[in-house]
Computed example of a mutant assay.
Amino acid sequence: MVNSSLSLLSDYPFQRLRDLLDHHELPEGLQPLAMSIGEPQHQPPRLLQDTINANDTTWNKYPPVGGTPELRTAIKGFLDRRYDLKPDFVNIDAILPVCGTREALFLIGNLLIDRAKDGQEKPLVLVPNPFYQVYVGAAVMNEAEPVYLPAGPENGFMPDLEAVEAATWEKTTLLFLCSPGNPQGMVADKAYLRKALELARTYDFTLLMDECYAELYDTDKPCGALELAQESGTLKNLLVFHSLSKRSNAAGLRSGFVAGDPALINSFVNLRNYGGASMPLPLQAASAALWDDDTHVAENRDLYRAKIDAAERILGTRLGFYRPAGGFFLWLDVSERWDDAEAATLEIWQKAGVRVIPGNYLAKTDANGKNPGTTYIRVALVHEQDIVEEALTRIAGIL
């Protein structure tokens, strides 16, 4: 009665975290602090609500699945400014607004994975390890085989593309990459992105760049895959994903976009006509206003930078602290004190009342029993400054 592929999906990490922590009581009077979920707690700019209110007469209209011209034009303007693109490189026909990038990252498997026929090998979908669970969902629900590429400190927390054999690339249909990365906060440089795009075109698969943290960076502005595509003058074999959830603290808006290869975008519109949700017109107008405005983004970035400053001050070099180049997560190495991330997570919860997530919940154990997240915990710096400092001080207090 139920699609058998569902059995291939692992438990979602936050359910595993609840199973680990929820039956343990905290000391009396200790207020719990949740630093496990990457849900921005900063308020979005007033511009969001004002624009929705100004467009409240359009709730009764069916919105276009492909987005209004105004929204796609605003997105194009953002891309041109952010990545210094030539005005004619990414036009609005190469842009598709979506109801949050999670929906799009999952549905992309329906679009681009050609399921194996009887007797044929499954197509391969390559994902970084640790990974965002939706990448794997897109693969297994379309009968593809996920291949987990280790992204540990030995290779700068990015998959080593040179280590992948040609025989694997030849069977690859999708390569997911995330930069800035979740959870490690690394940023792919131009040479790395150039190599990834070169491989996609050599072996004719699609490079899927999840760039939803692109506007949250510490010092240097991360480059994007569209910049590298512009060098060759074509968007072929490339799709990039962006979101307002982190950029504008608008996770509840469920608004993002996909941009890239126009032929793939056109096919994606056709697919979403059948199975994709349309973003209501007031929300499309609000999204356009947010993509048009960079001031609130710079203010938001400063708030996160101040919290990373606090983390550096409170933790110092303990737990292998390093400043993430992008995003709002700390990826802390607990191996000097604890045997594994679950033990660390449990003790931090019981003694400090701070909820973090074990790194192995965000990664896959390989055939040799190695999990790149086993010695790490992820801490989300999403709350206001005082709460973040309190949580980090509690963690430091038990070291």
Rank of each mutant, 00 (worst) to 15 (best):
C223R: 05
P69S: 06
S179V: 06
R46Y: 03
D294I: 05
R355I: 04
E39G: 01
E70K: 15
V164S: 04
A214D: 13
L6D: 15
Y322L: 12
S278Y: 12
P63L: 05
K190E: 08
N273S: 14
Y12L: 10
A367D: 11
Q385I: 03
F176Y: 11
W338Y: 13
E342D: 10
I75Y: 11
A263K: 15
P64F: 04
D218K: 11
K370A: 06
V258Q: 03
W331N: 10
D80Q: 15
C178G: 12
R82Y: 12
W349N: 04
E28D: 10
Q41N: 04
Q31V: 05
I357G: 07
T168K: 00
S287C: 03
D339R: 08
L79D: 01
I387P: 04
D218C: 11
A188Y: 00
K171H: 15
V382E: 08
P40I: 04
V240S: 06
R337H: 10
P262A: 06
E347V: 07
E154D: 15
K364R: 07
S179H: 09
T73C: 12
W349T: 05
D50E: 09
I265M: 14
R194L: 15
K190Q: 11
A289Y: 10
Y62V: 13
A214Y: 13
I37H: 05
A325N: 14
Y83R: 02
E165C: 00
K86V: 15
H242P: 07
N368R: 06
P44Y: 06
L399S: 02
E145N: 03
V382R: 01
T202M: 02
R254M: 04
N129L: 14
K86T: 15
G369F: 00
T206H: 07
Q43P: 01
L20I: 05
R82S: 13
A144R: 02
T168A: 02
D80I: 08
E231A: 03
M35A: 06
R318Y: 02
L161T: 09
P87A: 13
H242V: 08
R313C: 12
I387G: 09
D22F: 05
G316C: 01
D333R: 00
K61W: 00
L107T: 09
T219H: 11
V127G: 03
N60L: 06
P63N: 04
A214L: 13
I52H: 03
E312D: 03
